[in-house]
Computed example of a mutant assay.
Amino acid sequence: MQEYVTEDRLTKFIQAALLEDVGDGDHSTLAAVPKDQQGKAQLIIKEQGIIAGLALAERIFKYHDPELQVDLLLEDGNRVQPGEIGLRVSGKAASILTTERLVLNCMQRMSGIATKTKQMNELIGHTRARLLDTRKTTPNFRMLEKWAVAIGGGKNHRFALYDMIMLKDNHIDFAGGIAQAIKATRRYLEKKQLDLKIEIETRSLDEVREVLTIGGVDIIMLDNMSPNIMQEAVALIGDRYETEASGGIDERSIIPVAESGVDYISVGALTHHVKSLDISLKALRFHQQTAG
């Protein structure tokens, strides 16, 4: 698992998600299913893609009912085909029913993200560029979405506002310009005794030249530039700083961007424009024994 996927964060997420979904009780299950009814269900893959969230699913089942038996038949990151079985879970039928939707909601979205990440990564596999995610994530679901990107072979960018400095166009404009933004940031980090990387956005070759003159950063973002201009910018920057391409990049535009020579390509669509993978959890037939 990634370093940001901690037991504490997982527990808090599962607690909040179950509270949201179950509230004061799963009344459908409580009404219809005997309390001690035993059952078994299996996770069925219904669409081709990359599976993600199996490790999380096991934790959700076990958090709700530690007596549930979960058998993982695949691993996160596996390429899957329709008809494959991802896991089987057995134990109290009521526990399986109550956790079913949370497991599916997480796994379907995570698998959709992992699948899209894998597809885009394969498009640029012949280049040196690495695929990055962004902070364009679903509130309170970021940990799982970034985890899914990593499962799909992408690289996580900063997790949140606190673990990296990113000076974007609005920061620069409000600060009064590139020089003012960089100098103020360096003073702030020194005063606070913080060791954070600094990335700055540039929108033209002139802005790239200005950053190169001032220095004091770690990564230069090339935002909404054409691949030809990016190539010129990469040549100007050389080995002095890492480079990141950004700005509405999708499957149609990512190859020429990667071929410009940039180190990283950030794609917000990995998490904000994704189709969930079709997965279902189906009960295996259970014939209740009756007293003779």
Score class of each variant (00 low, 15 high):
D21I: 00
D195Q: 15
G77F: 05
I113S: 03
I220S: 11
H171E: 12
K146W: 03
H27F: 13
K92S: 12
L68C: 11
L132G: 10
I255Y: 03
L10R: 09
E201C: 10
S28Y: 00
A175Q: 13
R135V: 03
D239Q: 09
L281G: 08
G125I: 02
R130Y: 12
R59I: 05
D71N: 00
R79G: 14
P139L: 09
D71C: 01
M1E: 14
A114L: 08
S246H: 01
G39C: 01
I254W: 02
N105E: 08
G238W: 01
I172Y: 05
L102C: 03
T117F: 08
M221T: 07
P82R: 15
H126V: 03
G248M: 01
G177E: 07
K168L: 02
R158Q: 07
A93T: 08
E20D: 14
M110P: 12
A41K: 05
E100L: 00
E3Q: 03
T134E: 05
T134L: 07
K155W: 15
S276K: 03
A32C: 14
G238R: 02
I265Q: 03
Q119F: 05
T127F: 00
L284Q: 11
D263Q: 13
A16D: 10
R187I: 05
L18T: 07
R88Y: 04
R240E: 08
L205G: 02
K118A: 04
Q38E: 01
R79W: 09
K282D: 14
L132Q: 13
E199A: 02
S95N: 12
A52Q: 00
G177Y: 04
P227G: 14
E242W: 13
S226Q: 03
E58H: 14
G152M: 00
K146Y: 10
S266Q: 12
A258V: 01
E145R: 07
G91W: 02
L87V: 03
G91M: 04
T271W: 06
K35S: 15
S95R: 05
A93M: 05
D169N: 10
A52Y: 04
Y264P: 10
F141G: 06
S246F: 09
K155S: 14
L222C: 08
I51S: 11
G77R: 04
T213K: 13
N140A: 13
L104G: 11
M143L: 09
A32E: 15
H27D: 07
V70Y: 02
D65I: 10
L104V: 02
D8K: 09
